[in-house]
């Protein structure tokens, strides 16, 4: 799952740059608001989860690790 998400972000959102698991993804020049919405759409489609607006938080989306942990929690629920 970690790898699936990483591949999506690297290929589609940060132009083939390699990202590390705990690198902040949302600083200026990295992923923008459009990118956040694309990540949400990607996760919903790939993992069959529904992401409520109240979950759009740093603790869930700030880094690759945070996203993976969040998805694991949602898919287990």
């Amino acid at each position: 799952m970690h790898e699936t998400i990483r591949e999506f972000i690297e290929a589609d959102l940060v132009l083939e740059r390699e990202i590390t698991a705990d690198e902040p993804l949302l600083l200026s020049g990295m992923i923008d608001s459009l990118g956040v919405m694309r990540i949400v759409a990607f996760l919903e489609a790939s993992f069959g989860i529904k992401i409520p607006a109240s979950d759009l938080k740093i603790s869930n989306f700030g880094t690759l690790n945070a996203i993976a942990a969040y998805v694991a929690k949602r898919t287990a629920a």
Partner: peptide
């Protein structure tokens, strides 16, 4: 307000 907060509305409201 750091950039990441501006992209994640629930965190921004908090």
């Amino acid at each position: 307000i750091p950039d990441p907060w501006l992209k994640l509305p629930a965190s921004l409201a908090e």
